[in-house]
Amino acid sequence: MEQSSIITIKELIKRFPVGKGEFTALNGINLAFNTGEFAGIVGPSGSGKTTLLNIIGSLDTATEGKAVVMGQSTGDLTTKGAAKLRRKHLGFIFQTYNLLPVYTVYENVEFPLLLLQMSDSERRKAINDALEWVGLTDKIKSRPAQLSGGECQRVAIARAMVKKPEIVLADEPTANLDAANSHNILKMMLKLNEELKTTFIFATHDDKVIKYLKRKISLEDGKVVKDEIIKIKGD
């Protein structure tokens, strides 16, 4: 079955000023991601994984080249346009969860829906569905400080998934989790990827994550050194 490209990256270069000179974090990246992919950008620290993810997520812009996400070139977007793209089509999962500390689990998951100005009833249903996917229906009134690391990341996944975005960008989602929690979370994401056809893109160097990837893009010194489709062998 032919799949459409949801993300296209062409000749992307990203340089950062360092002292009087410049550091090239990404150097001539060409990539395309299709709908429903479960892909990972892997590589050692400093290889440019997070930078690439940030550019795809329109949190950062390319120095040269372009990244087209959902048909929109992120470099050409205004700050409002970029915010709209993130609000409507992108979900983020962070290494340190980035939950809002004063909100309950319910409120954290509700947050993206508030930005989308969904009605109360729609919101309630979507939140309950999302919390059911991640198995946290019994923790809706808890605050992040009362949860374990695994639970926090599950809340973060629910928050990223609640609006059913086309793309979820996950930056080292298991780095702060133990092996058991990492596997649970990855299984959960894989399930959501299969059920909702959401495109997942990971930035990781964690073998536990790599094991679950269907596509592995290896980055070294800001360059794609390998892009391979992986056949899942099972758990």
Binding site: T79, A83, R86, K88, L90, T96, F111, L115
Partner: peptide, 16 residues
């Protein structure tokens, strides 16, 4: 700051 970054990542504009 982390919270502010999260707001922006989730689709709030800086003005918001």
């Amino acid at each position: 700051q982390k919270e502010i970054g999260t707001y922006i990542a989730m689709g709030m504009t800086r003005a918001q």
